[in-house]
C-alpha cells in the first residue's frame, strides 16, 4: 500500500513539475517575444518559416473542413430550432457555435495534426544528432532560438486559420440558409442576424481559445523534442507524447475559457 501511494505521489509530483515547467516556458516565451532585441534575423526567418509550414500550407485543408463544418452546423441548428419552433435564434446559435467553439477547437486540432509531430521530430532529431549542443557551443540560447519562434508561430497560425475557418464556415452556413430556408430569401437576413449576435466576448473567446492552445502546443512540442536524450529510437515516443499532451492542453484550455465565459 505505501508503495502504491508512493507511486501515485511520485506521478503527481512529476505531473505538477511538468505543468510548472511548461507554464514557465510559456511566460518566458511571451516575455521574450515582446522584446524587439529577441527578433534577430534568424528568429524572424524561423518564425516566417513556421507560419508558412504550419499555417499557410494548412489553408486549403482548413477551408475544406470549414465549408463542411459550416454547412453541418447550419443544418443541425436549423432542423433542431425548427423542431422546437425557435428559428428566430438561428443566426445567434450558429454564431455562438462557430465563434466560441468550433473554429478555435477544430483549427487547433488541424494544426496539431499538421505541425505538432513535425516540430517535435525536428527538435528531437536536432537533439540526438548533436545540433542542439552545437548551438550551445556557439553561445546561442536554444530556448530563444528553437522554442520561441515555434511557440509564437503556432499561436499566430491557429489564430489566423481560425479567422479563415470562421469566414468560410459562415459563407457555408449562408449557403445552407439559401438552400434550406424554403422562403427563397437571399443570405442577407441570416448574415445580419449572425453578425448582430456576435459580441466582444465572442471575439475575446475566439482569440483566447486560439492563441493560448497555440502557445501551449509550441511549448509542449519544444519541451518534448528537446527532452529527448540519447538515441533516435526515443523520437517517436516524444512525438506521441507531444501530440497527446497538446490535445489535452487544448481541451483543458477550451473548457476553462468556456467556464469563464458562461459562469
Amino acid at each position: 500500500m505505501p508503495h502504491l501511494l508512493g507511486k501515485i505521489g511520485n506521478g503527481c509530483i512529476a505531473k505538477a513539475r511538468s505543468i510548472f515547467y511548461l507554464s514557465t516556458m510559456l511566460c518566458a516565451g511571451l516575455s521574450l517575444s515582446v522584446k524587439p532585441s529577441t527578433w534577430v534575423f534568424p528568429l524572424r526567418n524561423r518564425l516566417a518559416r513556421q507560419i508558412l509550414f504550419a499555417g499557410v500550407q494548412a489553408v486549403p485543408f482548413t477551408i475544406m473542413v470549414a465549408a463542411l463544418a459550416g454547412g453541418m452546423v447550419y443544418l443541425q441548428c436549423f432542423f433542431w430550432l425548427q423542431y422546437t419552433d425557435k428559428v428566430e435564434f438561428l443566426g445567434r446559435m450558429v454564431a455562438a457555435l462557430l465563434f466560441r467553439e468550433l473554429a478555435p477547437f477544430l483549427v487547433t486540432f488541424i494544426v496539431i495534426g499538421a505541425s505538432a509531430s513535425a516540430v517535435t521530430t525536428e527538435l528531437a532529431t536536432m537533439k540526438t544528432t548533436g545540433e542542439v549542443t552545437l548551438l550551445e557551443a556557439q553561445g546561442i540560447d536554444i530556448f530563444n532560438f528553437l522554442a520561441v519562434p515555434r511557440m509564437i508561430g503556432l499561436a499566430v497560425c491557429v489564430l489566423g486559420l481560425s479567422c479563415i475557418f470562421l469566414f468560410v464556415s459562415i459563407i457555408a452556413s449562408a449557403l445552407g440558409f439559401i438552400l434550406f430556408n424554403g422562403e427563397g430569401q437571399g443570405p442577407q437576413p441570416f448574415l445580419i442576424s449572425v453578425f448582430d449576435s456576435v459580441t466582444i466576448s465572442d471575439w475575446i473567446t475566439l482569440i483566447t481559445k486560439s492563441v493560448i492552445p497555440g502557445l501551449f502546443m509550441g511549448a509542449i512540442c519544444s519541451y518534448e523534442g528537446l527532452k529527448v536524450e540519447g538515441t533516435s529510437t526515443e523520437v517517436p515516443q516524444a512525438v506521441s507524447r507531444a501530440i497527446l499532451r497538446s490535445i489535452s492542453a487544448t481541451v483543458i484550455v477550451s473548457t476553462a475559457v468556456m467556464l469563464i465565459t458562461y459562469l
Binding site: T133, L134, A137, Q138
Partner: peptide, 17 residues
C-alpha cells in the same frame, strides 16, 4: 562562448545545422 571561435572536429558531433 560568443567570444570563442571554434572549428569543430569531423565526426566529433554535429558541426552544422
Amino acid at each position: 562562448r560568443r567570444e570563442i571561435g571554434r572549428v569543430f572536429a569531423p565526426r566529433g558531433g554535429a558541426a552544422w545545422l
